[in-house]
Amino acid sequence: MSTEPTTGAHGTGHGFATRAIHAGQEPDPRTGAVNVPIFASSTFAQDGVGAMREGYEYARTGNPTRTALEECLAALEGGRFGRAFASGMAATDAALRSMLRPGDHLVIPDDAYGGTFRLIDKVFTQWGVTYTPVSVNDVDAVRAAIGPQTKVVWIETPTNPLLNIGDIAALAEITRETGTRLVVDNTFASPYLQQPLALGADVVLHSTTKYLGGHSDVVGGALVTDDEELDAGFAFLQNGAGAVPGPFDAYLTLRGAKTLAVRMEQHSTNAEAVVDLLTSHPGVSSVLYPGLPEHPGHEVAAGQMRRFGGMISVRLAGGREAALQLCNRTEIFTLAESLGGIESLIEHPGAMTHASTAGSALEVPEDLVRLSVGIETTADLVADLEQALS
């Protein structure tokens, strides 16, 4: 598997966990507060007309708590620029609007997150943007889908919900050759497990609601890049459209990011134990997890991820009814949308997070169940699924 970069953002040379706790988070110079304060102010005094203190004038444009979060997120992804948004979809919208114009084309996963698909299919197509769904694990298919009007190749890896794996380095080589931009939604992996910028991606996107926040108590999104021109476009829409996180949201996300490294280790450990159960259970027809040697993307994932994460999808031998019964029978796994929190969640994508893909090329199987494996006691999670499947 890939190892942690020896040099952090801005040449600090610090490891991931150190950056998570300290990047953008120096003790407050006035009070010595170790935690970044929540700057709950909508506006900032100026020392003269246009003479702003530290560049702050209005909280939509910039807020010190948000700045700390953005610096930390950039450091965790090994990037120069980070922008925080009010949700993952707000970040998605800003990225697409910044990089696309009417008549442009983009490539998306054929099992993309339902919210991403809905935004592109129902909103951006009205703007004259076209798209082609392809399998992210098929490099040749991605190359074939790129045409003269293609501006963006947008991938998830692992994908949501089928956990397919895209070879980021190989796809980055294609986008460089074709003059397109590669955007990687890194939400499922988190910056701890995967570093897309180091592999050649132009932009990394996160729903910080998920693993970065990690406690199911805040909604947010982020864009990270090394490209100053791209960042300028993101910053313009961040301010101009105004989908920014409030200071308390930024504080909660920053607090969650501090423990990302230790949480992702336990998520991965628990997921591996759950996979051991599921692969041997007669009620399960297939287990979708990149950590399995038989997974078609296993070798690529092993080369670009530190571990294989806490997300698992399964297909039930009894079809849709068995999938719904499993979702309703668990006691520790909570039936709920979202993912990446410390508590374990279970859901039926076809009826919940991916309902918007029904009837499209991205429709998910009805027998599919998605698990977000939390950090509870490992044996308890295994026992819960065992009783729910019995």
Rank of each mutant, 00 (worst) to 15 (best):
G200H: 08
A201G: 06
A201C: 05
A201I: 10
D202H: 13
D202M: 03
D202S: 13
V203R: 03
V203C: 02
L205I: 08
L205P: 05
H206L: 15
H206R: 01
H206Y: 15
T209A: 14
Y211N: 14
L212M: 14
G213Y: 01
G214R: 05
H215A: 12
H215C: 04
S216N: 14
D217A: 07
V218K: 00
V218C: 10
V219L: 12
G220M: 06
G220K: 06
G221H: 06
G221R: 09
L223C: 11
T225N: 05
T225F: 06
D226L: 03
E228V: 14
E229L: 12
E229V: 15
A232E: 09
A232T: 12
A232I: 06
G233V: 11
G233L: 13
A235L: 13
F236E: 15
F236A: 14
F236C: 07
N239W: 14
N239R: 14
A241I: 14
A241R: 13
G242R: 09
G242V: 12
A243C: 03
V244L: 06
V244M: 11
V244F: 03
P245H: 08
G246P: 00
G246L: 11
Y251P: 00
L252S: 10
L252K: 13
T253L: 15
L254I: 02
L254G: 01
R255G: 00
R255N: 07
A257W: 01
A257D: 02
A261T: 02
A261F: 05
A261R: 07
V262T: 13
V262N: 05
R263N: 14
R263Y: 03
E265R: 15
E265G: 10
Q266C: 01
Q266G: 00
E272F: 00
A273R: 13
V275E: 07
D276M: 01
D276V: 04
D276Q: 13
L277K: 01
L277I: 07
L278S: 11
T279Q: 14
T279H: 05
S280I: 02
S285N: 08
S286W: 02
V287E: 06
Y289K: 03
Y289H: 10
Y289V: 03
P290D: 05
P290E: 11
L292M: 15
P293R: 10
P293I: 06
P293S: 07
E294Y: 03
H295K: 04
H295A: 13
P296Q: 09
P296Y: 05
P296F: 01
G297A: 07
G297P: 04
H298C: 04
H298E: 05
V300A: 14
V300M: 04
V300H: 07
A301K: 06
A302R: 15
A302F: 07
G303R: 15
G303S: 04
M305A: 08
M305V: 02
